[in-house]
Design a protein around this nucleic acid. Structure first.
Lengths: 341, 341
DNA sequence: TTGAAAGCGCTAACAG
DNA sequence: CTGTTAGCGCTTTCAA
């Protein structure tokens, strides 16, 4: 009863049990028409009987397809603690698997936190474990996108790469989002506005910062103090502490992501600042952290799930037709008004 | 120059380029002795020249091995937000990949948050994508451990399964840890002690709770009020709020994990309670959350990384010898004294 | 020490 | 509609 474990049953076994040829069994398994319904029934029964499961390696060897794709998260320094602490990555996984699962495509997550891990991941992909990869990188000068693109595997990126490489990606109109934050703060009557930005070597951070500055300038605010964080809550606290030390009078604040905003709000609360009366705060992302804030955070919606679903769509298309030219899809942000501003 | 992408080079190509047979190339690739050093050199050069990468499917078809294992995280309800918010999972991944990477074994992470996802994961494993699986499940009545065990794949669990199934696992002596917390609180002079537990249908939670109660009873404290949370920070806040409403006089608190302790501390601070003067708090896990607490949290060390490394060790052994009997390894907790108690 | 050859389990023409 | 057959790329006896 358990010996089938020793050598799992093959097509051959099913064929014998059903009294047909391997080809016929293969046909019913792959849902190809042109098979007599009664025989289909017999085969199906035989499959169940012997407990047959197709051998992926054999199948891949002839079809060249694995039926699975990798989501690679690449970064450095405090990597694991970062990934498993920021709601962003969960949204990405959710968006991708929501799109892939109904299609029967397997999603595997791989984490590359250092040079050797990166090499191993590239290895994995090049060996043909997956049909393609979706890549999310958290640091600017990551060599992985180029390595992967060069390997010839279909790849799609989250966010435009720093270096111009021929690769498909999905991104957000960060500048437009920052502008919405600026307009909102000004409309609410803020006079002394500052911002906590993300790491300045990350494109998205730069775009949010410059977008915000430009919009504020257009409203006549020539000077907008800013402090950079690294997108963690702790860095938001540190940045806020510094900001308040240098500019105790601010009445409006734009923070480049919700997690940092959460940290900033806690510091503000500890300082006795009432939100939004004394200080209005706008975050960015509309992640679960925005709702966890006290008070709930007014923020800019970053449709991460939709963008991630789009990544898988692009990837699947590229797998189907490898000659496809790289394509980019840019999403539009939205202002979400809650209580903090 | 780019056309090698169309059909990637095979052993045959390398053999031709090196002027030897496929078998010889295969030998040098697999590091088999009995190959003339000069030929080895020639072959290695040829490999680099044609940019050869072994085809995993073909290799697996004959060896039966994939060289990769899966880490499956299974759960439900708010699953993604939970996994990517709790430092615990990062520690698991870190422990496993730290052990596996030097061995050249690939680690892929798979998330199973609902019934269809579970089925897909089992599918993936049974199809032979991986040589074995490490399973972490966050809810009590998860059918996945049994499904996997039954499939015949080598599997190792984090934490003892609720149902007795023949499967290897690694666990912590939770009761012993809870006892340490109790002893410490009592030694610090606490008189009115309460606890915030984890979900009561999770074995580890129960063991921590009953271990704590027993130890307190041994110290003469017959009654220990408790409120259950679900291991998230938010649930810690809610539990603390409830606890303080019913028992405003408590001067000692044991919380079943650091994340909930963090939430509890925030509520305590908002109530004006001084820690540890008015209230001493001991957490559990010694995760990054413990250091993020104000003040830094006294807690019980849960050696998650070591335990995870041990899981991969067990799994590899089981893969090597599938007839191996299931084995369990229990780790001992340690008290880590910081400022909160 | 090296090469020839037999498959691993499956799919996909190609006949029938 | 079904069976036969030729490989997919690799490892591994078995000879040489």
């Amino acid at each position: 009863m358990r010996e089938d474990r020793v050598a799992s049953p093959t097509l051959e076994d099913v064929a014998r049990a059903a009294g047909v040829s391997r080809a016929t069994v293969s046909r019913v398994i792959n849902g190809i028409r042109n098979v007599d319904p009664s025989i289909q029934e017999v085969v199906r029964r035989a499959i169940a009987e012997v407990g047959y499961v197709p051998n992926r390696a054999a199948r891949q060897l002839v079809t060249g397809k694995t039926g699975s794709i990798a989501l690679i998260v690449s970064g450095a320094g405090q990597f694991f603690a970062r990934v498993f602490t920021d709601p962003f990555f969960g949204r990405v996984v959710e968006g991708i698997s929501g799109h892939l699962r109904p299609l029967g495509v397997h999603l595997v997550l791989m984490l590359a936190e250092a040079a050797d891990a990166r090499a191993q991941v590239v290895d994995y992909v090049r060996q043909g474990h997956v049909d393609g990869a979706i890549l999310v990188t958290t640091h600017a000068d990551d060599p992985l996108p180029a390595m992967l693109a060069e390997s010839g595997t279909p790849v799609v990126l989250f966010a435009r790469p720093d270096q111009p490489i021929p690769i498909s990606y999905v991104d957000l109109a960060h500048g437009a989002g920052a502008r919405m934050a600026a307009d909102h703060l000004v409309a609410r009557g803020c006079e002394r506005v500052a911002t906590i930005s993300g790491p300045l070597d990350v494109l998205a951070s730069m775009e949010r910062l410059s977008g915000f500055r430009e919009a504020m300038a257009r409203h006549g605010h020539a000077y907008v103090p800013s402090v950079a964080g690294n997108f963690t809550k702790e860095s938001g606290e540190a940045a806020m502490t510094r900001l308040l030390a240098d500019h105790p009078q601010i009445d409006g604040l734009f923070v480049a992501n919700d997690l940092m905003a959460q940290g900033a709000l806690e510091v503000a609360a500890a300082r006795g600042l009432r939100i939004p009366r004394d200080l209005r705060v706008v975050g960015f992302d509309d992640s679960t952290a925005a709702l966890a804030c006290r008070p709930p955070l007014t923020t800019i919606r970053h449709p991460v799930e939709d963008m991630s679903a789009e990544m898988s769509r692009l990837l699947l298309a590229q797998i189907e037709d490898p000659s496809r030219r790289p394509k980019s899809v840019i999403f539009e942000p939205e202002l979400v008004v809650r209580e903090s501003a």
